[in-house]
Amino acid sequence: MTAPLLHCENLHVRFRTQDGEVLAVNGVDFEVRRGDCVGIVGESGSGKSQTAMALLGLLADNGVSSGSVRFRRKEILNAPAEQLNRIRGSRVAMIFQDPMSALTPFMRIGRQLCEVLQEHTAMSRREITARVMEVLEIVQIPEPKRRFEMYPHQLSGGQRQRVMIAQALLCKPDLLIADEPTTALDLTIQAQILDFFKSLKKRTTIVIITHDLGVVAGLCNRVVVMYAGRIVEQGPIEEIFMGPQHPYTRALLAAVPRPDWDPDKPLPMIGGQPPLATRLPKGCSFAPRCAHAVDRCRQETPELRGRQHLKACHLDLPQ
């Protein structure tokens, strides 16, 4: 077997805050192989975004990460900024959640895109412009020549997200990390951007972070489910969706509204609140909300076990 493109081992992310230390990511292991499209799902605060930020060394000032992240066999976690800057944007690109605020308001679209190529390549000005136009065509922005001269506030949300994707694709990255790329967009635009991500799968490896299970179902071949800073279940998409093993994954899937749902019945939901990252319960973090929890769940933290399809749960639930 060849080495995975991205290998993340025992990743911890801590934040020092005034309320004490917050353990946002608590020992995460996963790997991404070339050509994969991996979905990381979880509720708000489950640590999925901070995992991605830690990979690229983009944590806030009070964040500390430990563990190991290897990209193309090289350790990149807590690497010096110069080394990271060679990888960021060129080998690994990232797309952010809110396209409305991810472009600096004082620079024309074209300039912002050219900037990335100027930093990472030795291309001439003309080659850079040509490449930017080419990528703007790839992301299907209407009239790229006009958009090139415009400022961010003149574009719609969908167009800005396309510009963000274009920025990510400029250097033909090996890995594209998308942090909730559709959350801030309205439904029809979401559908367009998702279709576009499907076509992107042929170009690059993708890690997509989302709380929208529909996005994962339509796009990914592997799923990582996170809860309270830990991975609770991961595996191939069919197995997770057809036979979820962890009670949290089951509850999450049950909570997705279906088109045939009877509007008179209450929507199924998971009772209770996710635990505070400053006060994680002893044992399994999900135990307080879990319908199946036994005494052992409240005492011992379950480890992530399995071969292809891994879960972190003491119980073997019937199918």
Binding site: L56, I87, G89, M94, F96, E119, Q167, A168
Partner: peptide, 8 residues
């Protein structure tokens, strides 16, 4: 953040 992620 996006500029940092782009390796500038």
């Amino acid at each position: 953040e996006s500029a940092r992620a782009a390796g500038l």
